[in-house]
Design a protein around this nucleic acid. Sequence first.
DNA 1: CAGTGAAGTAATCAGTCGATTACCACCATC
DNA 2: GATGGTGGTAATCGACTGATTACTTCACTG
Lengths: 197, 197
Amino acid sequence: MVSKTDRIPAAERREQILEAATRVFGELGYAGATTDRVAKAAGISQPYVVRMFGTKEQLFIEVLERTCELIVAAFDRAVADEASDKPVGPRIGEAYVHLVETDRGVLLALMQGFILGHDPNIGPVARRGFLRIYDRMREVMTPDEAMRFMAQGMLINTLIASNLTVRIDEDERVDELFACTFGDKLGIVLEGLSRSA
Amino acid sequence: MVSKTDRIPAAERREQILEAATRVFGELGYAGATTDRVAKAAGISQPYVVRMFGTKEQLFIEVLERTCELIVAAFDRAVADEASDKPVGPRIGEAYVHLVETDRGVLLALMQGFILGHDPNIGPVARRGFLRIYDRMREVMTPDEAMRFMAQGMLINTLIASNLTVRIDEDERVDELFACTFGDKLGIVLEGLSRSA
DNA sequence: CAGTGAAGTAATCAGTCGATTACCACCATC
DNA sequence: GATGGTGGTAATCGACTGATTACTTCACTG
């Protein structure tokens, strides 16, 4: 039934599942997503997903930790980028906007984690992830700058999650808000949107 | 089985259900909440909830529209407050912070709506609500100010949703972030927290 | 080539949840 | 005192979903 090329080492398959689960959880939320949707997105069967991660909850927790790692890693790269002549703040901002364009699922899954803060098992992981990102900011900017940066990030997450992008070029207020939010990085976002359309 | 004092006019009962549903949806999310939890929170039976609103989806949509109305109304009151000697920006900010303290469910339900932007039925309602709030801001401030205000609001929502408040007085970074986010309104928030604890 | 372990699935089960149905209690009014 | 409308529930159904079980296929190795 399964051709031999479909058999893949567990570690590699694990990463595939995490990637697919990030998209599915990001789109449907934790409760709304099903292990079967994740399985289909990863191209395998539902029982295999459950067996590899134990429970749906554990899978989500690993997705959440992975998204935080990806974001922190992206920030680290931006901070370490010696080639750029820009200050560190805008460099990190650009890195975040770049994530919007390339890996929307990461931001959405992160958002889904934050709003599960009440959950006894997921909540602590979400809070730890949030603080890890905040800490990273604080290493390169003041508390006030870091706060504003996080706020801007949360607005971006909300704009993406609420799918307001579909009304760009349709509603003047949306155009204005996007221009104001993304500033000189608006081009990057629009380019990413047209590519994914 | 039901004492006669439990019989209440439909319109009044409807408002009770919407209020209860706002809290339940805010805490558990749309998919995570059940009509039975809403019913128990409102003190009635599950079938009655469904019959009054048709479907769970329709109930959520009405909750979402109601939360937007409540927020816009709170802003309107703040704008119209002639007694205050503060500029309009801080007055609205204070109104929003006041919502954190008194009606957390409203902010959380609103957040839950935003992250359902992909949903074909709920998404449009969420976007309309977001823009209605943004419009209200734009009537009394510049695009840039309105964007920053929305960003700050989204950060506040995230801090509340992720339940980071539980780590106040436990984690220095959290204290710093809250002080920075709420500024001179931090007292209002802390007072609300200790009262609800 | 027997044997072992890793990769993966089909079938199914038990619990949950939204929705439906059929019913009951109360009050007004004629 | 029948009657009909309004406020409400108990019981239940069908679909969905996370998890479990038992099985198959294949590569490797002694």
